[in-house]
Amino acid sequence: MTAALEIRDLQKSFGGVRATNNVSLTFEAGSLAAVIGPNGAGKSTFFNLISGALRPDYGTVRVEGRDIVGLSRAEIVKLGIARAFQVASLFSTFTVGDSLLAAVTSGLDQSERMLSRFPPPQASSRAEEVADMLGLTSKWRTKSSTLSHGDQKLLDIAIALVREPRVLLLDEPTAGMGPDERWRMIEKVREMWTRQKITVVFIEHDMDIVFAVAPRICVLCYGEIIADGTPDEIRANARVIEAYLGTPNAEAPP
């Protein structure tokens, strides 16, 4: 079977900075993997390249065998790649419910219909299902901009999830949260992964979380993949230890 997401020799530079350097990774369908790395390692850039926000200088990205380099964000999402953002990216005047309903509507290819009413009746079951899965049902009528930080991150994920993607990219789902909230969040992510049976790749800074949750960990450092394996393999990897602990300048994981 072809992999859900196959990346070959991906490269991207900003001026002199090599943000992504010869990255090759394969994610099997239905897998869960974490991408870790110090600040500025190129993690978000990696997601930007896959989701079509940035065009790589070189390399290929295949979704279920299909090359997506050069396609627009809208075309890529239609092929089944969705993402959530490091800083929640919401529709500030929409309620939680309307955000999800509108996202479903776009998935139904009805977002430009003018003769019917919003929301289309078929939209509600999926929107409610996702709200329920991420624990947002009680906030259904709350305006996005007035949600708590944690709920904003959840809604951000929910908006991506609603379109039933095959690959879901989560950029630091626990960013800006306290320790307890982080664990609640990552539990929700894991539960969602189990229930939806999709490929999930998440970026995470909290090492306790990463080692507890991710069956596979990819370590990015200065744009390069320096290690890729199970938590045990990563813990024992000399280059990772060096990158995180050896050099005094490197950002130590929390």
């Binding site: 989701s51 627009s72 809208a74 999402v77 993402r83 990216s89 500030s92 005047t93 929409f94 996202a103």
Partner: peptide, 12 residues
């Protein structure tokens, strides 16, 4: 509200 996010939802 958020043209970027709309594009990520497949909206032209």
């Amino acid at each position: 509200d958020n043209a970027d996010r709309a594009a990520y939802l497949g909206i032209a």
